[in-house]
């Protein structure tokens, strides 16, 4: 993992932040938290969490891009470092708590999503999800009184994420959903990332930055989700799930409705005989551009560096894929 982080770790190093310091602390906190549960529940969560590491990453952790952390792990670090000015024990503790909240909220949503999607057989994890939510609330309560405006943002964000998860599953059940509808649903799922952003902005009295930051977050989530949809296309189709990429590719191949039995083959064909995947990369670039536009007024050089690296990464993958298409036809 360390080597994968350091590959794209320029943004963190530029800010003088040793990201590697935070990871072991967070993992230790997660371990302690999970060990406090009934052993049957912690055992099932451990099984579940070991499956979160992708096969590709397990096979080749040094070279795999899939092992990288998403932006929402880095963003709280950049923001607290920027807003708190000098590093005090209080700001350090706040950062560690807020990162922990981010991780708890991530598991709260991720577990429910996996249960709903049938990606885990352990039904007991619904209670693990509850425990993560309660833990996040408990930590946040140390910083925000019950009357704080923070809680309104918190409830709204969780409501939006919950609704969007159900809506996304519904939209992905049929081929030929308008891609724009899926993008909107993906943006909705991302709402829970607003919680930590809002917590930091309220804590450091930077509410003027909130809308830029949430916009940045949404665009980053969409860009990453589109890459994820491409990576998961085969698996998703196996489970009858038509993600954004599947829907976009189907639009490329024909204007007519494809019989259900032929949909998978049509999508495969679209990958090779159309520039559908190239257009997908353009969509990823567009969302990275929107993220850059949103974050620009905030003067966060780490974010700009990360976005630059991601754009370069997209260009490189796009080039490899184009070569693959050319070779398919000519070799």
């Amino acid at each position: 993992m360390k080597s994968a982080i350091s590959q794209s770790g320029r943004a963190q190093k530029n800010a003088g932040i040793s990201w590697d310091d935070h990871i072991p602390i967070m993992e230790e906190r997660l371990k302690t938290f999970v060990q406090s549960w009934p052993s049957s529940l912690s055992g099932e969560f451990l099984e579940y969490s070991s499956g979160l590491t992708s096969a590709e990453f397990r096979k080749n952790p040094k070279n795999s891009w899939v092992g990288l952390y998403p932006f929402w792990i880095y963003l709280p670090v950049w923001l607290t470092e920027k807003y708190s000015g000098k590093k005090t024990a209080t700001s350090k503790q706040f950062l560690r708590d807020i990162l922990w909240v981010q991780i708890c909220l991530f598991f709260f949503i991720r577990i429910q999503d996996d249960l709903y999607d049938g990606h885990t057989k352990y039904q007991s994890l619904i209670f693990a999800s509850n425990l993560f939510l309660l833990e996040a609330e408990s930590v946040l309560s140390d910083y925000f009184s019950t009357s704080s405006r923070f809680w309104k943002i918190y409830r709204e964000a969780l409501k939006n994420s919950s609704k969007a998860i159900v809506e996304t599953v519904h939209l992905q059940q049929r081929p030929r959903t308008a891609p724009a509808k899926l993008i909107k649903a993906y943006a909705g799922i991302a709402a829970h990332f607003d919680i930590v952003i809002a917590a930091i902005c309220i804590r450091y009295r930077r509410m003027a930055d909130l809308s830029c930051l949430t916009q940045f977050s949404v665009q980053m989530v969409i860009a990453g989700q589109l890459m994820d949809d491409l990576e998961d296309l085969e698996d998703d189709l196996k489970y009858g799930k038509y993600n954004y990429v599947a829907n976009r590719l189907l639009r490329e191949i024909t204007g007519k409705l494809t019989p259900q039995s032929k949909v998978e083959e049509e999508i495969r064909r679209a990958i090779l005989v159309t520039d559908g995947v190239g257009k997908l990369f353009n969509a990823v670039r567009k969302h990275l551009h929107l993220a850059a536009k949103a974050i620009k007024p905030l003067d966060l050089p780490e974010a700009i560096t990360l976005l630059h690296d991601y754009r370069e990464g997209v260009n490189k993958i796009a080039f490899i894929i184009h070569q693959q298409r050319v070779n398919f036809f000519f070799k």
């Binding site: 360390k2 794209s8 092992g67 990288l68 991530f106 991302a190 990453g224 890459m227 990823v284 990464g313």
Partner: peptide, 16 residues
Amino acid sequence: STNPPPPPPPWRIELQ
């Protein structure tokens, strides 16, 4: 793999 990488999936974290 490419270096630098494209944006990683937002719903995935790999434990060290």
